[in-house]
Simulated scan of single mutants.
Amino acid sequence: MEHPGRADLPGLPGRAVGRLHLLADRTLLVIDFRYHLVSIVAVFLALAVGIVLGTTMLQDPFLDQLKAEGVSLKEETDKLRADKDALTALSTGDDQLIGAYAPQLVAERLTDARVVVMTAPGADARMVEAVAARIQQAGATVTGTVGFTDRYLEDQEGGVISGLTDRLKPAELALPSGTRYERAAAEIAWATLAKNEEKAGREDPAAEAVLTGFQTGGYLKLSGEPATRATLAVVIAPSSAFPGPDINGDNAAFVAVARALDDTGQGAVVAGGPTARATDGLLAALRDDDAADGVSSNDVADTQAGQVVTVLALAGERKGQSGQYGIGERADAFLPDPVPPPISKG
């Protein structure tokens, strides 16, 4: 087919045009909105009926079961609470009984012994006082108290402590090669303890100078006459975990103190309560260390019975008997076995 005025365009081929099929001659099925609405309403109605029927049928047995379980749990809880109250009352009674007879229980267990009391930062003052009282009731003399301060454990004080240890060292003392805490502990132990009872109880200007030097530096607090030297030592653990960022390092510092005391004197006992026997506590660290082969420990020193055990542990150390006592992990027994006998004056 030619296009007038467009001679450059080729003619398009012709094609037969088919018939146009119209919808008018067919039936179109359409689902209207009302059908949708009725279907949806029917579905929700069936669901509601099912829920109502199910709830009605299950309501009584299901609720009865829940009520029965609730009653059973309450009875079990009440029984456990009653058992706990009974155990608490029994423990309180036991502690009162031990307290009443403690002087007789510890009498003459430490006859003529000399004991120095050392305290870690945060030690409970009441525990310190109670343990010292039991030691005196056992026939020993408490030479004094050496309290370590928080400053002793501060990292920035490390260089100062090392320098002070070297400066205060008496000529007769050979310090071990080790950490600053091991060297300082050895020097403090030398100033407060002696294996030989003839050397104990005497004034020593060199020992006094060592302790005074650490006190002046702010690392120790002193009471009594610890420089007159004892033969046994007890270390009171802190009542809570060391607050510093390096708990393991702080525990290691006082394990070093306990080891040095045990090496220098006739024996040492580390005493504490629940916190000290916990995973990050001083007693747990001691019992994980080979220092426990010679140093005794007691993890119930917060009780009257535990304070008696501390005395018995010191008596055992005096005879070369070491052990880990109490109720915590790695405790050998609650108290020494055999129990060290009384020692008559003579």
Rank of each mutant, 00 (worst) to 15 (best):
L173T: 14
A174K: 14
L175V: 07
L175C: 05
P176F: 08
S177G: 13
T179Q: 00
R180H: 05
Y181V: 02
Y181W: 06
Y181F: 13
E182H: 08
E182M: 09
A184E: 10
A185S: 13
A186Q: 02
I188K: 00
I188N: 00
A189D: 10
W190Y: 11
T192L: 08
A194G: 00
K195L: 14
K195Y: 13
N196D: 15
K199N: 14
K199D: 14
A200Q: 11
G201R: 00
E203T: 14
P205L: 11
P205T: 10
A207F: 04
E208Y: 08
E208R: 12
E208G: 13
A209M: 09
Q215W: 04
G217N: 00
G218Y: 03
K221A: 13
K221Y: 04
L222H: 01
L222Q: 06
S223C: 10
E225G: 02
E225S: 15
P226E: 11
P226T: 11
P226W: 05
T228I: 11
T228A: 02
R229F: 06
R229S: 04
R229N: 09
R229H: 07
A230C: 07
A230W: 00
T231S: 12
L232F: 08
L232K: 02
L232C: 01
L232R: 07
A233G: 07
A233N: 03
V235I: 12
I236D: 04
A237G: 07
P238E: 03
P238T: 03
S240P: 07
F242A: 01
F242G: 00
P243A: 09
G244Y: 04
